[in-house]
């Protein structure tokens, strides 16, 4: 995608302020045909969660173009997230002040050939591409002048890291004979479902010279998916079903274990 209109994208990335978002989107969606571009693929484009799901491992691999370094970002669907701070009231800890952030990824992992700071990429680019836990620019839905945004956004990131849903430090990316790259990203059992995006950035001399994106779908399948969808889409019938199962169970027990 960069091959066709590199100048346009770079201008847009560098001068984010005067660039209309529509233009950035258009650039991002443009297909690329340049042979020197970075190429990426996944061992599996679809991960299935069933009743036995204990987590998974996503293999990302590809070929670099002219770049020296590779950064891989795996990002789950965005959603709103509320951070609540406990406060001590009358001796017990109660949820007090809260802040709701928009566009928080449900999963976020970064993998790189070496520490990102060592690559010398301009901070504006990292912010623009949202590379790094502290580069996502989490914004509250309703800003509260009495509360420090950074306090709550830091807590948000810490929590996600503790849940295994954000990476603390980049996962290593292996570069083989300078051109083939490969990395494996762990997906824990509490990973969310939906369409994830795998974005690969190619870096040379502190500049992002190529990028590529490919989707990953994580969905519930089998009995697990049926039960989940039943509970969400036919909630009333699901409730009735749950009660009926319990009634039959209870009745069977009283018949089977009847005394005398």
């Amino acid at each position: 995608m960069l091959g066709t209109t590199p100048i346009k994208v770079f201008l847009c990335a560098a001068g984010l302020l005067f660039c209309p978002p529509a233009m950035a989107q258009e650039a991002a969606q443009e297909p690329a045909h340049e042979p020197d571009d970075v190429i990426v693929d996944l061992a599996d484009h679809s991960i299935e969660i069933d009743l036995g799901f204990k987590g998974s491992n996503l293999l990302v691999f590809g070929v670099t173009g002219d770049g020296d370094d590779i950064i891989v970002v795996l990002r789950g669907p965005d959603r709103r997230e509320t951070v609540r701070r406990k406060e001590r009231i009358g001796g017990i800890w109660i949820n007090g002040s809260s802040m709701t952030f928009r566009d928080v990824p449900s999963f976020y992992a970064v993998a790189a050939t070496r520490p990102i700071l060592d690559m010398g990429i301009d901070a504006d680019f990292l912010d623009y591409y949202q590379i790094g836990n502290d580069r996502m620019g989490f914004a509250p839905v309703r800003p509260d002048p009495g509360l420090a945004v950074s306090e709550f956004s830091d807590a948000l990131v810490d929590h996600r890291v503790a849940q295994g849903l954000f990476t603390q430090d980049p996962i290593p990316v292996k570069l083989i004979s300078g051109r083939l790259f490969r990395t494996a990203i762990d997906l824990p059992s509490n990973v969310s479902t939906g369409t994830f995006s795998v974005r690969v950035y190619e870096v040379k001399d502190g500049k992002i010279i190529g990028r590529r994106q490919t989707p990953l779908s994580i969905k519930k399948v089998g009995l697990e998916a049926r039960i989940y969808h039943f509970s969400r889409e036919e909630a009333f019938l699901y409730g009735i079903f749950a009660v009926l199962v319990a009634l039959i169970f209870g009745w069977l027990v009283s018949v089977l274990f009847r005394k005398g």
Binding site: R79, R80, K86
Partner: peptide, 11 residues
């Protein structure tokens, strides 16, 4: 140990 808690959605 952790004063903060997360929940999806709200507002």
């Amino acid at each position: 140990a952790d004063l903060y808690s997360l929940s999806a959605g709200a507002e």
